[in-house]
Design a protein around this nucleic acid. Structure first.
Length: 256
DNA sequence: GTGATATGCGGAT
DNA sequence: TCCGCCTATCACT
């Protein structure tokens, strides 16, 4: 079944023309990169970046609203892509180069966390920064890095080489579980059932990013577990959040 | 209406 | 380390 493609916004008009009428053969994802196979070893490469969205709807296909970079239409509905950082057609061989520059993805069956550990265990960079480096681990972003470090009680400023293998194994397993859950639900929830506001007898929360979290964007709010004020700082241009008490380790590293 | 902000990242400095 | 990309949303006038 061929797919219809168009670029109402116009910025991907040439690409949409090449896609229009082709059969989508396969889909692949590595970290934050989505890849759709078009045939002849050609793949459509999409990365949403920080702004991008992809929305889906059933037929009938409505007039596009907003800046729709790419609209794909099939028998069962349509998909609208807005504001992606990347929307391009890859030439043969480009896909392999993409995989090669990305670290293991906790959601992929072929992922080898040992490859990431080799980099992390030799690094003098804070673990909170390493977890955002897609060439080390592919997939986690600013929410998961803050939340997984909280859940594992790890100081974000701890250097990669000061992390124990056990801590890394726990981080990896937790990321795999959290991200798989996020894929299923379409939102990021990281709070254990016993720490939900209801279970703790607290008023309901109003986080605006969609999910229940421990520390992300909760600066100056009390920690859900110990009531300590959540700390925040800008690390490598991104807002980092952590609980100074729950994530204080016996051998205190410098603040990030 | 205006401005700040956002689950990211590449390139310039 | 900072800037800019690119779009939508929300708080605030």
């Amino acid at each position: 079944m061929p797919v219809r493609a168009e670029s109402p916004q116009g910025r991907f008009a040439a690409g949409a023309l090449q896609i229009d009428g082709q059969v989508l053969l396969d889909a692949d994802a590595h970290g934050k990169h989505l890849l759709l196979e078009l045939g002849d070893d050609r793949w459509l490469h999409i990365h949403l970046g920080i702004y991008g969205t992809c929305t889906f709807g059933p037929p009938p296909v409505p007039a596009p609203t907003g800046a729709v970079r790419l609209r794909l239409m099939g028998a069962n509905g349509y998909a609208d892509l807005r504001g992606p950082a990347t929307c391009e057609l890859l030439e043969p061989g480009d896909k392999k180069a993409l995989h090669d520059r990305l670290g293991p993805d906790p959601l992929r069956a072929d992922a080898d966390p040992g490859i990431a550990w080799r980099r992390i265990s030799r690094s003098r960079t804070p673990i909170a920064t390493l977890l955002m480096d897609q060439s080390i681990v592919a997939g986690p972003g600013n929410i998961y890095r803050a939340e997984v470090l909280f859940r594992q009680g790890i100081d974000p400023g701890r250097l990669g080489r000061d992390l124990t293998f056990g801590q890394w194994t726990a981080i990896w397993a937790d990321l795999a579980a959290l991200m798989a859950d996020g894929m299923r639900s379409g939102r990021i929830d990281t709070v254990h059932p016993e720490h939900t506001p209801e279970a703790m007898g607290r008023p309901p929360r109003k986080d605006d990013h969609g999910g229940e979290v421990y520390v992300y964007r909760r600066a100056t709010m009390p920690c859900l577990v110990c009531d300590t004020e959540i700390a925040t700082t800008v690390l490598a241009g991104r807002n980092l959040f952590w609980c100074p008490r729950c994530q204080a380790e016996p051998d205190p590293p410098a603040a990030p």
